[in-house]
């Protein structure tokens, strides 16, 4: 072997390595795209896709840690059990009802609060702070606080009722009153969240529009419906998506206030899932219930997403 041929060989090797390296350092569009997406894909796969698939798989198993028996594939048996389970139906119905009552409730109250906070005050921070506090309060604290408010003997609600000459109620002794108390608490808690998002939206509306409307002689009410509401719509839709999904997952407030009582009349789907998995260790049935909740959330999100994309298409 001559020296030159060996040199050629080495040069060739160096060349291939450099080509590999340059492909890595300066990849074409497709490779670059894949490389850049990889971290997000791995993360999503790890924290969303894998758990959801595992949940789906578990929902087809008879897997109860209290039995000591190994997991057994049972097909749709868990879902069939659900159909015959009165507590499941009650919990699902309660969840839907809570969503239907508290989401519009919080929207109306939140909108009102946001409009108030947006008024030209001199000192705005106390108003903004009081808007922030209910939202910053942990859910379970809010539940505990309101449980005391509505307590039949020591509660402030009955005290106020008595002072104005009305009889107090045993709130948590009646399914309807207990449900009403829960909805009121959730609305109070969620309104501040709504108000904050809407307030941010309100501040993006240029003052000049209102000034022009003033010049044209449009009244306050007309201004609200013609300027404020249409320009707030995208903000409101986003707030509604967040709020609705959170409402479908309602757990903390009824858990702390009534524990689902009296009986099981104020239990929600999330509470029932928690009970089956954490208290009863029936992971199969609990997973099946969670699958139902997942589907419910997906449906609602799909509807909202359609609303958004529909609007964008019309533009």
């Amino acid at each position: 072997m001559t020296v030159t041929s060996r040199l050629e060989q080495v040069a060739e090797r160096v060349e291939t390595r450099r080509a590999m390296l340059s492909r890595l350092l300066d990849p074409d569009e497709t490779t670059l795209g894949a490389l850049l997406l990889a971290p997000a894909a791995v993360l999503l796969g790890g924290v969303i896709v894998y758990p959801v698939c595992k949940l789906l798989y578990t929902s087809f198993l008879d897997l109860s840690l209290t039995s000591g028996a190994p997991a057994r594939f049972v097909g749709l048996a868990n879902f069939q059990q659900m159909l015959e389970d009165p507590v499941f139906w009650q919990a699902t119905w309660n969840t839907i009802l809570i969503t239907l009552i508290t989401v519009p409730g919080a929207l109306v109250v939140g909108l009102g609060l946001a409009l108030l906070a947006n008024l030209p005050f001199n000192i705005r921070w106390p108003v903004r702070l009081s808007l922030l506090i209910p939202w910053a309060l942990p859910l379970s604290f809010a539940g505990l606080i309101f449980a005391w408010f509505f307590h039949s003997e020591y509660g402030v609600v009955n005290d106020v009722l008595n002072r104005v000459g009305l009889p107090g109620a045993i709130w948590f002794n009646s399914p309807r009153l207990a449900f009403a108390a829960i909805c009121l608490t959730i609305t109070w808690k969620a309104s501040s969240f709504m108000a904050m998002i809407i307030l941010a939206g309100l501040q993006t509306i240029p003052r000049s529009l209102y000034e022009a409307a003033d010049v044209d002689g449009a009244g306050r009410v007309r201004q609200f419906f013609e300027i404020t509401l249409p320009l707030l719509k995208p903000t409101i839709v986003v707030a509604l998506i967040f709020r609705t999904i959170a409402a479908l997952q309602t757990f903390d407030i009824p858990y702390m206030m009534t524990g689902g009582g009296p009986g099981t009349s104020t239990a929600t789907l999330a509470m029932y899932i928690h009970q089956n998995t954490v208290s009863f260790l029936d992971l199969g049935y609990g997973s099946a219930l969670a699958v139902v909740m997942f589907i419910l959330s997906m449906c609602v999100t799909a509807v909202y997403l359609r609303m958004i994309s529909g609007r964008e298409g019309a533009r």
Partner: peptide, 23 residues
């Protein structure tokens, strides 16, 4: 029973429901 938690839940929520006049 190993499934005592479930037995307990059935009994205690029913006692509660009866005393509250739900059932």
């Amino acid at each position: 029973t190993p499934r005592y938690n479930e037995v307990s839940e059935v009994i205690r929520t029913t006692v509660n429901a009866v005393l509250a006049g739900v059932t």
